[in-house]
Computed example of a mutant assay.
Amino acid sequence: MSKYLLDKFLYTVDRDPDLVERYRADAAGTVTWWEEEFANKLLNCTTTEKSTWLAFTDEERRALRDHDHVALFQLGAHPFLTLTLFIAMFERDHGPLEYQKAYGKAMEHLRLPYPDIAT
């Protein structure tokens, strides 16, 4: 499991409006494509330098493909990264603050200690 890779996915997708729409419309395809093309590239690096060992676990892939923010949090993804990305994808389908309240309600069963989200 790689909290870094989960957070990198959430961060990079959230910062590109085209990727947000692609992820919203085709989560499974976007996750597969992103993992093949970007998982091993260095973040914010303009060279072709890259690593070779980063990959999502099956559980991480499932959570990303299902847009399951609760599972992503339990896997260690930073909640602010999931919240900002998921607001960009789903807030338009709800009234004012409805999505944010539903996001919080879905996580209210979680108790301390939370997963470590240190960066």
Score class of each variant (00 low, 15 high):
13 V>T: 03
22 R>W: 09
28 A>S: 10
65 R>D: 09
72 L>W: 04
100 Q>D: 08
80 F>D: 15
3 K>S: 11
80 F>P: 04
51 S>N: 11
23 Y>E: 00
92 R>V: 08
52 T>L: 13
62 R>S: 12
63 A>W: 06
71 A>R: 13
60 E>C: 04
91 E>N: 13
21 E>Q: 12
106 A>I: 00
80 F>Y: 11
116 D>K: 10
107 M>S: 12
13 V>C: 01
54 L>I: 04
5 L>V: 04
38 F>V: 08
63 A>M: 07
11 Y>I: 04
39 A>S: 10
31 V>F: 02
25 A>D: 06
33 W>L: 08
50 K>L: 09
22 R>I: 01
13 V>L: 05
72 L>N: 04
70 V>Q: 12
73 F>I: 03
82 T>Q: 03
65 R>E: 15
45 C>R: 11
40 N>F: 06
74 Q>R: 15
18 D>F: 06
29 G>S: 03
2 S>P: 03
97 L>H: 12
117 I>N: 11
68 D>L: 05
113 P>E: 12
62 R>A: 13
70 V>R: 14
66 D>R: 15
101 K>A: 12
111 R>M: 10
43 L>N: 11
67 H>A: 05
44 N>I: 05
70 V>T: 14
61 R>C: 06
61 R>N: 07
4 Y>M: 10
119 T>C: 07
93 D>C: 04
86 F>I: 00
51 S>P: 00
84 T>N: 14
36 E>A: 13
94 H>K: 13
97 L>T: 11
7 D>P: 03
23 Y>D: 00
18 D>R: 13
64 L>P: 04
60 E>S: 03
49 E>A: 14
11 Y>G: 02
43 L>R: 13
41 K>C: 06
79 P>A: 00
96 P>W: 01
52 T>C: 07
65 R>F: 01
112 L>V: 13
113 P>V: 08
27 A>Q: 06
57 T>K: 05
112 L>I: 07
53 W>A: 14
53 W>G: 11
11 Y>R: 14
26 D>V: 03
39 A>E: 04
81 L>I: 01
24 R>L: 03
66 D>F: 03
65 R>M: 13
98 E>D: 15
22 R>C: 02
117 I>M: 09
87 I>K: 15
10 L>W: 05
